[in-house]
Write a protein that binds this DNA or RNA. Structure first.
Lengths: 199, 199
DNA sequence: CAATAACTAGAACGACTACTCTAAATCAAG
DNA sequence: CTTGATTTAGAGTAGTCGTTCTAGTTATTG
């Protein structure tokens, strides 16, 4: 075999996450190096480029959020309740894991699916598949009349994730705690936004 | 006097705005130079630093939005209607002026009031005064019972501007048009979010 | 016309960053 | 123990960007 690893991939990603949380999206490889204790050579031995490191971090942070959301989605019988609960849960998760939440702001899927390192394009493209399927199911039950409309998923996604994320984003980026009263705002706004589908 | 100016400040700011719209917040002085036709020396003759150029651009874009909002705020008798109209108007303005809207995402006031070039701190600090006063007045009429609560302005500001801006931001940053159906989502969500003050 | 102030013009500089390269350390297998 | 694959280690490289510097240009004023 060979020499055993002194740093796990997750250790390096954790360091990158913390540097992004403190220095923003312009965090440098040198900063990740000192934060993790690994020399730059080791980091480049593990990740082909800074881009790959940050994209992998972004993928990990969003997959972790989705893991949590997929659990919550099944805990409600009423689809509207489930959708509102998903919005509120997103806020809670980001409040509990501010650095992970900061990493989620690094990219947007639509642009990244074209610009990401070649070997990650596929993973980026299918990142939201699980979550979208869930939102599609809940949306179809919430709006039976539009169950076949392809725009339904975008609408639901916007009213739940987009709305919640937009409200908490300023706090996430600033690194300040998300105020608890925001959960109530999100719940009411989300429920009301979802009524547009009834038109 | 001396030689007359070949480039106005606004011309340089326009070029900076367009470069930020196409290249993001990392737009370089060299890009602004070629986009405007002005050599870097001229740009630095007018602005002390790249930071000052971008902060001035940011200030201008937000002041222009506020100019428009201040007009709209007076057109409604009912305070709730006025607040919802302000949220929708923000979306409309950003749809009509996508590059200006992109420039608004360059900074956040809270962090900038500490890190901006010294000579601009004052202007940054008081940037929102006019708008906040209006939101304060409308909020006091909407929630007479909490008229003296200092948290009221933050609540109203979040439910109107924060909510709207969070929903449209993805489109603004991506440079894709803001879909028209979003206006209805914003209106309903904003009205519902404002009901939290009634607790 | 001469003097001067204000600006244009762009080459040059220094700092920083992503990335590479070579050498050494470490561990499993024969 | 020796071999060889794998990783650590960090000095070195090329390129980019913000900024500065010096020279030259244009208009206004007396």
């Amino acid at each position: 075999m060979g020499r055993s690893r002194k740093f796990t991939d997750d250790q390096l990603l954790d360091a990158a996450r913390d540097m992004v949380a403190t220095h923003g999206p312009g965090a440098t490889v040198a900063q990740v190096s000192t934060a993790s204790g690994a020399p730059t050579g080791s980091i480049y031995h593990r990740f082909r480029s800074r881009d790959e490191l940050l994209v992998r971090l972004w993928l990990r942070s969003i997959e972790r959020l989705h893991d949590r959301l997929l659990q919550v989605g099944d805990e409600h019988d009423d689809p509207t309740e489930a959708l509102v609960a998903l919005a509120v849960e997103t806020a809670r998760y980001c409040r509990e894991h501010p650095a992970e939440a900061r990493a989620m702001t690094l990219y947007r899927q639509e642009s990244l699916s074209q610009t990401a390192p070649e070997e990650l394009r596929e993973r980026v493209a299918h990142l939201n598949d699980r979550a979208l399927a869930m939102f599609g199911r809940l949306g179809a039950r919430r709006f039976p009349a539009s169950a076949d409309d392809p725009r339904l998923v975008e609408l639901v996604f916007t009213c739940v994730v987009g709305l919640c994320y937009g409200l908490i984003r300023p706090y996430v980026v600033a690194g300040t705690p998300i105020p608890p009263w925001l959960d109530e705002v999100i719940a009411r706004a989300c429920a009301a936004a979802l009524t547009v589908g009834d038109i």
